[in-house]
Design a protein around this nucleic acid. Structure first.
Length: 183
DNA sequence: GAGCCGATATTCT
DNA sequence: GAATATCGGCTCC
């Protein structure tokens, strides 16, 4: 799995769609299937690593499989999976997922029963992810771990929520037309 | 369903 | 002091 994650973010990102992310944070078990991702590279103006290493993005320069968790807009935690060579500053942002286990816990954490994990901030809240998980190894940690699954058909689109390099088609989501409609 | 807008913290200018 | 890889609540279709 590490070998696979060592490829560049735009190569790894589409393959991550369909994988599971399991959390035991706070003693509750929650599992989701990744449905939407975005790739960010070091020479990417929209990437946090573009301006060099800093206190906030330090873990983005760690080895492949490292979790890079940051606070967005002062409110929302967002989870990235570091890819590429150590020190390169590449990562895949997890934007959306489908709850496959621990739905009760997720509803409790989110305070609502709809739109549980359809955004990076919501995804982290659902799994209980905060800055505490920044820098952990997603291939070995017991509280937050990636589980490899067969990749699913994806479609590529431009990234959203950013103001630079918006022309790069580095967002991937499950191709609903191939998987015969929403679950 | 789409579009506007305020809330809020850390970083960088 | 401005910008930001967002969200939820509100409006108006």
């Amino acid at each position: 799995m590490i070998g696979l994650l060592s490829a560049s973010a735009p190569e790894v990102a589409p393959q991550l769609v369909g994988w599971q992310l399991r959390s035991t944070i706070g003693g509750a078990r929650v599992a989701v299937e990744i449905e939407e991702v975005e790739a960010y590279t070091a020479d990417d103006p929209a990437s946090h690593s573009a301006t060099g290493r800093s206190l906030r993005n330090a873990s983005m320069f760690g080895p492949a499989g490292t979790a890079y968790v940051y606070l967005s807009y002062g409110i929302h935690w967002c989870l990235n999976v570091v890819t590429g060579p150590t020190g390169d500053g590449q990562a895949v942002l997890l934007r959306g997922a489908r709850v496959v286990e621990g739905r009760r816990t997720v509803v409790e954490r989110r305070g609502r029963a709809d739109h549980l994990t359809d955004g990076p901030g919501k995804l982290c809240q659902a799994l209980g992810i905060t800055g505490h998980q920044d820098g952990i190894d997603l291939t070995a940690s017991s509280e937050l771990r990636l589980i490899r699954q067969p990749s699913r058909p994806v479609v590529a689109t431009p990234r959203i929520g950013i103001s630079k390099a918006t022309d790069r088609p580095w967002r991937w989501l499950v191709d609903r037309s191939v998987t015969s409609g929403p679950a």
